[in-house]
Write a protein that binds this DNA or RNA. Structure first.
Lengths: 150, 150
DNA sequence: TTTCGATGGTTACAAATGAAACCAGTTTGG
DNA sequence: CCAAACTGGTTTCATTTGTAACCATCGAAA
């Protein structure tokens, strides 16, 4: 009978990896700032772009609009961001971080970068285990990577 | 001011990729069999191993025991699996797919494999965009992969 | 201008989730 | 033999999430 090896099934592996990484990173902004993931993404988006609408935020960070709406509401409650109604379109609000929000963002950036760096280093140490696994999954089936840029 | 580009932040990219893939694949078992992800993983684990305990299932497929418990309960309700109490340890139950459960599993395996293959192909078509991105993220910082097996 | 479909954003409700409490059974150490 | 610590598994409860309905506004077409 044909069986499926879950442990090496690409969607499963990807999910597991991402979940583990994401959980670990979430500790940083959760422990430090008491943020949820949508809130962190919102903070991050605004910190990066200065000002954005809720829709833009959703696009950039791949969040459903309800998530954005809730995250924005919470950050507003904390006075980490303010809303400014659009001049021409009264449905739209432009969001911007307050001083406090910006301070939080500034605190997070180096932590995030450090986390990423460490993650990359860890992967190197483990002989790029993760990377290798993904590649393995890709190579296993199909022809050997043809025009690979690697 | 130092900013963080969310779109290229490794944890974020990983999560997004995995989420997209997982969601797409979930359509297969959800539309087809009306299964949730934990239920699919349970079905998959049992199909693969024949018989397992709830704890083993949790280990194999990285699910919290409450998820396992609920998934097992649901599959049992559908009569897709049966529980057999362990001889020596009366806390433990051995789970096994019924005919119906096995039939569902058999139906899923080729679909899952096809999905994976298609996924891999799609990546190839896009010049291994995903793979490339991950690698790029890894290369960007740090020294060029030293003992890379690639 | 009025109406109708699309769009920005919020809210309500149901389902999925995680943490912690819990129950039953098992092991360990006195 | 007994109490305490532990383990397999379930349940409870609060939180998070997604879907869909919703409100307000806008743009286009009649």
């Amino acid at each position: 009978m044909e069986i499926l090896e879950l442990e090496s099934f690409l969607p499963y592996r990807l999910y597991r990896l991402a979940d583990a990484v994401s959980r670990e990173f979430s500790k940083v902004y959760s422990d430090r700032l008491g943020l949820s993931r949508p809130e962190w993404r919102t903070l991050s988006g605004l910190g990066q772009h200065g000002t954005m609408t809720a829709t833009e935020l959703g696009k950039q960070s791949a969040m459903h609009k309800t998530k954005v709406s809730r995250a924005v509401a919470e950050l507003e409650r904390r006075r980490w961001l303010t809303r400014t109604p659009d001049e021409n379109d009264r449905r739209v609000e432009h969001l911007m971080l307050t001083k406090a929000g910006l301070a939080a963002y500034r605190e997070m950036v180096p932590l995030a970068k450090a986390f990423e760096r460490e993650l990359i280093n860890r992967m190197k140490l483990h002989q790029q285990a993760v990377l290798f696994d993904v590649i393995y999954s890709l190579e296993r089936k199909g022809t050997p990577s043809p025009s690979s840029t690697i």
